[in-house]
């Protein structure tokens, strides 16, 4: 065993370190070059500047896209988390026929190429004679976000002690009252975590927004339009850095909340 450890140990951590570099370097490059005082992304770096960030403020098209993204993100987070709560609660609390196919259908977007989901939604929207707008983006992104919301919520709801709710019923509380006063406080961190995760996905989601947004671009669609112009690259790098920062902050908070949710449901298991 000792020999085996000695042989593997220096090699494997080095490999893991290289792997993490591979994961993180491309993402760290965007902020590095967003502060670089040159219009091209060449090494060595030219000098420090914040002018690319300053240039973002005056850009009304960009600010409009950011507003669109915010509206879509908030709506998607709320709707997909509410629908996720229903489904997660149903499969962790009840057993019924058709549970597996129903769950399979709801989780299916995880296992489908996104372009096929996008194309099929585009067809149904145009078939029904609806106009492409932020509403269609929201409808589409909710389909895509429910599986993520559900996996966060199911892990938060699992292990929740039913007898707490039964006690509440026995003491005369209604179903709604029990949910609000017993269930909700225990699962609240999981719900917050789901809201943050789905908001982040919506903020970064491109394909569905690209197909379904019509004339109102979200931030990723706006960035896609800018990529054609080489001169716009530094501004896009600055915007991208801000979006990455937002994603990382939101996800860190979501992770902290998710762990708190796990600890809480485990705490209720202790007799």
């Amino acid at each position: 065993m000792l020999l085996h450890r000695l042989r593997l140990l220096p090699f494997l951590p080095a490999y893991v370190a290289v792997y993490f570099l591979f994961l993180y370097l491309p993402i760290l490059l965007l902020p590095v070059f967003s502060f670089n005082d040159a219009a091209t992304t060449t090494l060595p770096l030219a000098g420090f500047t914040t002018k690319w960030y300053a240039s973002l403020w005056g850009n009304t098209v960009l600010l409009q896209a950011a507003r669109n993204s915010l509206i879509v993100g908030v709506c998607v987070a709320l709707i997909s988390t509410i629908l996720g709560i229903c489904a997660a609660r149903a499969i962790t609390r009840y057993r019924f026929r058709g549970q597996r196919p129903a769950t399979g259908l709801i989780m299916a977007p995880l296992f489908l190429p996104e372009i096929i989901v996008a194309v099929s939604l585009l067809m149904i929207v145009l078939q029904m004679g609806l106009e492409l707008s932020l509403v269609t983006v929201i409808l589409g992104q909710v389909v895509f976000c429910i599986p993520y919301s559900m996996s966060v919520l199911v892990s938060g709801f699992e292990g929740f002690d039913r007898s707490l709710e039964e006690a509440s019923y026995d003491l005369g509380e209604t179903a709604i009252g029990t949910f609000r006063r017993v269930t909700l406080p225990v699962v609240a961190p999981a719900i917050v975590s789901s809201l943050l995760v789905t908001f982040t996905i919506s903020l970064d989601e491109f394909i569905l927004a690209f197909f379904l947004s019509g004339t109102e671009p979200t931030l990723p669609v706006y960035i896609w339009g800018q990529l054609r112009f080489a001169a716009k690259l530094p501004g896009v790098l600055a915007l991208g850095s801000l979006m990455i920062l937002a994603s990382v902050v939101l996800l860190t908070v979501a992770e902290v909340m998710r762990r708190r949710a796990e600890r809480r449901t485990q705490a209720t298991l202790v007799p």
Binding site: I82, L83, G84, C86, A87, R89, A90, I91, R93, Y94, R95, F96, R97, G98, Q99, A102, L105, I106, A108, P109, I116, V117, V119, S120, L121, M123, I124, Q127, L139, G140, V142, V143, I146
Partner: peptide, 28 residues
């Protein structure tokens, strides 16, 4: 009651997925 409550609980999500995933893919 158990089955009905489970189905009632999952139905909003399921109807959403049917309307905006299964129906569109079937249309394709």
């Amino acid at each position: 009651s158990e089955e009905a409550r489970g189905l009632a609980m999952i139905s909003p999500t399921l109807i959403y997925a049917l309307a905006l995933l299964l129906v569109p893919v079937t249309l394709v």
